[in-house]
Computed example of a mutant assay.
Amino acid sequence: MMKPVHVVRRSLAALAAGSFLVAGCSGASAPSPEAVEASADGLSVEILHEGLNHPWAIAFLPDGSALISERPGALRHFPAGDHGPDFSGRGELVPGLPDDLRARNQGGLLDLALHPEFADNRWLYFTYAASVDGGLTTRLARGRLEDGALSDVETLFTAEPGVRGGRHFGSRIVFDDDTHVFISVGDRGDRHQAQDPSNHIGTIIRLHDDGSVPADNPFVDDADRRDEIWAYGVRNSQGMVMDPETDTLWENQHGPQGGDEVNIIEPGNNYGWPVITYGEEYGGGQIGEGITEKEGMVSPLHHWTPSIAPSGMAIIRDPAFADRDGDLLAGGLAHRTLRRLTFEDRELVDEVEVLPDLDRRVRDVRVHDGAIWVLTDHNPGELLRLTPAD
């Protein structure tokens, strides 16, 4: 592990007290990049943008530009600069988002992912909270991103049924090497539905890139279970990442009061919510039988009690971080944290608080082009870039 660098130019706490934008002033321009501090994990931190409205996801385009989704329903494009995306401006709004997008409570415009062959086909995939019969649901769509706008937008998947209320939508999008697309769907606050694979609530979904169902999905042709389901029994997965070297699908999910989980998602598995959990009812009291293991259900590889409320998740496979190769990164909302996790043979051997003085809700984490990129879930929300301090 890199040794911590102790030289601090300006702390995040000082910036929070003095130089951040006033809440609600999301139309202001971003500051120029500025070195902020050396973190507890030997990383230099820069604030690249301070004017985002509850950002949810970032995607980097092959031409050096970037997209950021904002939960209230905006998709912003930041042009290519001399050394990657230029975040000095507000970003241009991308038109063409679906009319049925609804920004309510935890719902709105959510994750972004490029098709693995985006440079040729221009397909941008995104999830959002959609208005349907029965209430709201998680929907996966794609559109062609050309000339700063979305066209040919089509719905690929709609989680059924729609549920009233505005929480636990998931949802992350992940591709594997065979262009299968995985989507996480939350339990929508109706916990017992997560044990009923005749619907999509509390599941991990696997599709072909055109939205059709792969013939080798575990429940294909099972009349009692949905063909699209890859795994089930999850509560609310807001972090998911595919390890490109091992094809391992990692996932984190919110527990109730305690019991946040890290899992490896494998086909056909039941991850137990709400039958097994390390959490308890809000305000106290056991959930169900108060058990953490049961035959036929998969217990987590790691859990956080008390909760950190995990969200964005990334895996480090970048030569700039060679001494951290294969480690996981997980952002935390309630605990306002960024954690680095080291697993060996599915056992947690180390956990590091990367930014102990952050005091920001971390929504998304990505590793790209020699840097760790972090979006904070506020209005105004920030984009941070972390690089090795040496």
Rank of each mutant, 00 (worst) to 15 (best):
R346E: 14
G255Q: 05
R385E: 10
A16W: 10
R71F: 07
P256W: 09
S32K: 14
Q195N: 12
G81M: 07
S44Q: 14
P274L: 00
L15N: 07
C25V: 06
G84Y: 04
D227Y: 12
S307D: 06
F169Y: 13
P300T: 02
I173S: 03
K3P: 14
V8S: 10
R142V: 02
S44A: 12
D243Q: 11
P310H: 00
F321I: 01
E92T: 10
G239E: 13
V365M: 06
A14H: 13
Y271I: 00
W230F: 15
F321Q: 00
M242L: 13
D209Y: 08
G233Q: 06
A23F: 07
G24N: 00
Y125A: 01
R172G: 00
Y232M: 06
D260E: 07
T292A: 03
T376E: 11
E117T: 09
V367L: 04
R346I: 00
A13R: 11
R71V: 04
L145F: 15
R361K: 05
R346S: 04
K294R: 15
G91Q: 01
L386R: 13
P62E: 05
R76K: 15
T305M: 01
G186K: 09
T246N: 12
S311P: 06
P310C: 00
V181A: 02
D99G: 02
G162N: 11
E280H: 04
R71E: 07
T376A: 03
